[in-house]
Design a protein around this nucleic acid. Structure first.
Lengths: 144, 144
DNA sequence: ATGTTCAGTTGCGTTTTGCAAGTAATATTA
DNA sequence: TAATATTACTTGCAAAACGCAACTGAACAT
């Protein structure tokens, strides 16, 4: 069944696809944390339930945000990769990180401080590029 | 009760606050569409249900993203305004619009094309500023 | 052959969502 | 002034989504 959009607004439509607790967390785990397999997603600190994970992987694969790949030398494990469409979410994720850093510390004092947010803010476009190139480099290591 | 965050990751934490179908739609309706009252939100093309709207307005007010204001000359209607924290979401919303424009047309052919996306992409920072200043200008018209 | 790992699926109770209808306070109109 | 309308909600209820735990089945590992 095809996705049903609430209206023709691009922002609302983005939220029709991305607007839930888990979808962008999974994309972030792939892009930032380098996770590729079901097991890696499940073992993440966010502790996603397996049924939810299965559902989201299926949905975002249908939408062309990720690809599910079989490995030639291993029939048991699968790899999930971001497509260009998925990689295109890098700026959205980056802006969320910046917003959190500047606006969520009052509600969440333990928020991580490890990322060089000030550096990122100086040149967002180049940081987006760094993340995307790093991701592409990483996935080019494996043969499918 | 205080909000519970899944972990200390800024991106995941942003999604703990913003990760649902409606929260950012409401922020967008305020920022882009100029909506201020309960009635205006309900009458929007996204057609949010009133109980959901009440719930989200309460939650994002608690988190400091919006402010609920009474008008001195009118005891019936209330105005909802973005705070600086809410206005800080402008880049996130803008990046979602850009992502949709470039990546959602295959799934959603009727997606609006009215916004000058190419112009926006040329200088994102200045467009963020324009939106924020326009918003502030608009709300400064009313006395509370 | 046996045990383990990986990628799921299933069952079930809880929570959230969505629709429709109702309400209460204020403002407008006849 | 009385009736009507408007605004901002609240309530009830059914449906969908979520979350936990247990289970399965294929593929490897010993």
């Amino acid at each position: 069944m095809t996705h049903s959009f609430r209206c023709d607004c691009p922002i609302t439509s983005a939220l029709d696809v991305l607007g839930d607790k888990w979808t962008l967390v999974i994309v972030k785990q792939m892009l930032i944390d380098g996770k590729k397999t079901f097991k890696e997603f499940v073992e993440s600190e966010e502790a996603i339930a397996t049924n939810i994970l299965t559902d989201r992987l299926k949905k975002i694969e249908e939408k062309g945000i990720i690809k599910r790949l079989s490995l030639p030398e291993n029939k048991k494990s699968k790899h999930y990769h971001l497509t260009e469409k998925g990689l295109g979410l890098t700026p959205v994720i980056l802006e969320m990180a910046i917003w959190s850093d500047g606006n969520l510390r009052d509600l969440h004092p333990d928020l991580s401080t490890e990322n060089p947010i000030e550096y990122i803010k100086l040149n967002k476009a180049s940081f987006v590029n760094i993340l995307q190139e790093r991701y592409k480099e990483r996935i080019s290591q494996t043969q499918y």
